[in-house]
């Protein structure tokens, strides 16, 4: 589950999930919902593989979302569906989506970057919680 929260000039994302892998996948869906107003319209016709090395869940989240942002910015790929595995080497994700089509996808925000401000990933009593703020 994810929700947005306000932060002066920018936008925050709060994510909860039962485990770390679904937390990362859910955060990626949250990012998509920041980019387009109608994420449900994104079809899954192409696949990209994303690998992030590291152990710290905070930096895994940061680097994963930053990578998705670069893929969107350079290749105009909207990614909507994620299978995420976290192992000792880091994160491996299979992300599916399609090329941006302005006729069907209503673009919402240009996300400049994921920021370190208030960035957190933590275990809670009933799963995992992440919060982050993006620069608009």
């Amino acid at each position: 589950m994810f929700e947005f929260f306000g932060h002066t000039a920018d936008l925050g994302l709060r994510v909860t999930a039962p485990d770390l892998e679904s937390l990362l996948a859910e955060a990626a869906r949250g990012l998509l919902a920041m980019l387009v107003d109608n994420p449900q319209q994104v079809q899954v016709t192409s696949t990209v593989e994303v690998k992030i090395s590291g152990q710290d869940p905070v930096y895994l989240l940061f680097d994963f979302l930053s990578e998705l942002l670069v893929i969107f910015d350079t290749r105009h790929l909207l990614l909507a569906d994620f299978e995420v595995e976290v192992s000792g080497d880091g994160l491996h994700a299979r992300a599916r989506g399609e090329q941006l089509d302005p006729a069907r996808h209503r673009l919402a925000h240009e996300v400049k970057a994921i920021t370190y401000h208030g960035l957190k990933v933590e275990k809670t009593d009933d799963g995992w919680l992440a919060e982050l703020i993006v620069d608009i």
Binding site: F4, G6, T8, A9, D10, L11, I136
Partner: peptide, 8 residues
């Protein structure tokens, strides 16, 4: 300078 957040 902004006076209101984007969500607000």
């Amino acid at each position: 300078g902004r006076a209101m957040s984007r969500t607000a």
